[in-house]
Write a protein that binds this DNA or RNA. Structure first.
Lengths: 107, 107
DNA sequence: CAACTTGTGCTAATTAAAATAGAACAATAT
DNA sequence: ATATTGTTCTATTTTAATTAGCACAAGTTG
């Protein structure tokens, strides 16, 4: 799993858990990059990914602000862990499940 | 999505649909490679992925034989499309959802 | 037994994506 | 004004995927 996707996933995870709320600001890209010792562009790429999904609003000088869209992520807060639990029970691997979902999405 | 993952995903999709059954044999790697005009190693890599998941039994001379494990895949035949439908409703993108699942798996 | 099929293992070359690096710039905030 | 923060650009390095070809081992088939 690419680094920039991991970063985005981490933010989504917080969104589902309700840790981050609309209006809240994510730490500046340069800040995140410094603390994790990775490149700024990698962080920005993750942020731009989240913007494309409508999860954050990205502006110069202000940073990455969480949108109202987060609430919708919370609605999946139950369904996702449920499916994952079911998959684990069956012994289905992570990317076996994710691949199935990608397949379902396309059809 | 990598080619070898697409191949594996396609087989899993058939497994969930019930198109392939235990004991059945997947077409030989060289055969698949020729018909899709891709490299044999790519197909083999997909097959080995499926073996790690316990979906197929891989042996020289015989080929890739589907195991009894397939039945368990069928149990997810309902849950997966359900979650995907819900995600689509909310406007959640494909890899936003898959990333969330990966995150859930890890925790 | 012999011939054929099929996955396994190996090395190597090519291609594509990701990550890093550094700089200049534009919009926003303070 | 000054500092902050995302945007854009080019370039390089690193990593993963794909292709390629070959020899080999374990099965199947006649």
């Amino acid at each position: 799993m690419p680094l920039f996707e991991q970063l985005a996933a981490s933010v989504r995870f917080d969104a589902v858990k309700g840790t981050i709320r609309p209006g809240e600001r994510l730490p500046a890209a340069r800040e995140v990059a410094a603390s994790l010792d990775i490149n700024v562009h990698t962080v920005l790429r993750a942020y731009q990914l989240l913007r494309e999904e409508g999860l954050v609003d990205l502006r110069r000088g202000r940073g990455a602000v969480v949108t109202d869209h987060v609430a919708q992520y919370g609605e999946l807060g139950d369904a996702v862990p449920l499916l994952v639990a079911q998959a684990k029970e069956v012994g289905l691997g992570v990317h076996a499940l994710t691949a199935m979902i990608r397949q379902e999405y396309g059809s």
